[in-house]
Nucleic acid binder design. Structure first.
Lengths: 225, 225
DNA sequence: GCAAATTAATGATTTATTCAAG
DNA sequence: CTTGAATAAATCATTAATTTGC
């Protein structure tokens, strides 16, 4: 149980809304601001998008079992079992150091491949899952910004921590964009992968579980607290 | 693929909601600078977009392929090919109907198991992935609330939509809790996995795939856009 | 009547907040 | 108090509708 399992989650936050179904007819006002530039955009965008839309879906596929794992490999625990049951990730100094290094280098929201690699690297220093990496970047970015804002208010000037423009590429070929405080949106997508670290036994062969395999887990809630 | 692994604890479910704090107060005004679109012409737009978007997007799971797809295989199209390329989920009426039914029954934020099952059921009516279910609930909840708030402001009364207490169990043995406005926080975690529901071929043996499968995605971001 | 141009919905992401473990 | 984790709000981006011109 507590053990966490693996889990993979993806998406982090999202939340929009929609409306009640059948109420047709009710139209409300239009969306307020959204449009702005859109007019143009839509067209352009659409077209444009379509064009490059090919996004690549690399499609990872499915794979559920991952990396090493798959089998029972249980990780022989590299070394730490630090994280008790399934509580929360407790980063080691090395891990933090690396993460900060990456952050300072400009990394903001690593994509799936990057997260995989980072996770793999950091895994050498202690247990960690992809989501931890993801969250770390999210939180760090947010808190860094928050801090900066606070200080600017207090001091009245804006420091604006210049971020060195170093491109840290981790070995991914893609490189990543960095955006410091860039404007609000960039929008890209992000994916993650994690590995299964915990592994208990379960998940072993693919064929085994019947029922299970069918599932794709989704948001899971570990425990209910 | 799909094999997901396992684990999920029992997550039950409740979903915390938290309430909209009425006191928000802070509304933030964002600088809206974002849009590059306007003013600009195609060039900009294109360029801009291209720039951001092109990153890597790993797409999660199942996939999209379609467009040019060509990868091999893929779905024999059960029935609908409605989903064109691989763009975004385009729910069918049946799917929406079921989702709304669940929503009205009190389901708010389904946990992993629930999403799995819902996805499986809805998959009968058209292609769908777990994340779509998750997003749907998030969006529906948020927009429902938003609408209510707006109307309340306009009308000055508070409706408070009473939710019929019907327990919809989907066939999950567990049933789920419904929480309408349950207490404040519950906090649990959520994870996802995606799946591949494809059932068909693919994913059979575990050992097969090569590279891709390696990932198990976490927070995933479906596709890029 | 149909297709481009708009507009309304709504799926999918990102950012900001909040909660709570350590 | 620090910070990992999770949720809600704000947005962006597509797609379904609807409108408009021919």
């Amino acid at each position: 149980m507590g053990s966490s399992m693996k889990v993979h989650q993806f998406a982090r936050g999202f939340w929009p809304e929609h409306e009640p179904s059948l109420t047709l007819g009710c139209k409300r006002l239009r969306s307020l601001a959204p449009k702005l530039a859109n007019t143009v955009d839509s067209t352009t965008t659409t077209a444009g998008v379509a064009a490059f839309d090919l996004k690549s879906f690399i499609k990872p596929e499915s794979g559920p079992r991952s990396k090493f794992g798959s089998f029972d490999e249980k990780r022989d625990s590299p070394q730490v079992e630090t994280h008790p049951g399934g509580t929360r990730w407790n980063p080691t100094q090395e891990q933090i150091g690396i993460l900060e290094m990456l952050y300072k280098g400009g990394m903001r929201t690593p994509n799936a491949q990057q997260i995989e690699q980072i996770t793999a690297q950091l895994g050498k220093y202690g247990k960690i899952e992809g989501k931890n990496v993801f969250y770390w970047f999210q939180n760090h970015k947010a808190r860094e910004r928050q801090k900066q804002k606070r200080s600017s208010l207090g001091l009245g000037h804006c420091p604006r921590t210049p971020v060195p423009i170093t491109t840290i590429t981790l070995e991914t070929r893609g490189g990543f964009e960095r955006d410091q405080e860039v404007s609000p949106y960039k929008r890209k997508c992000r994916s993650w992968a994690s590995e299964s670290l915990e592994e208990e036994d379960q998940s072993k062969s693919c064929t085994d579980q019947e029922g299970d395999r069918t599932l794709e887990l989704f948001p899971l809630h570990p425990e209910g607290r």
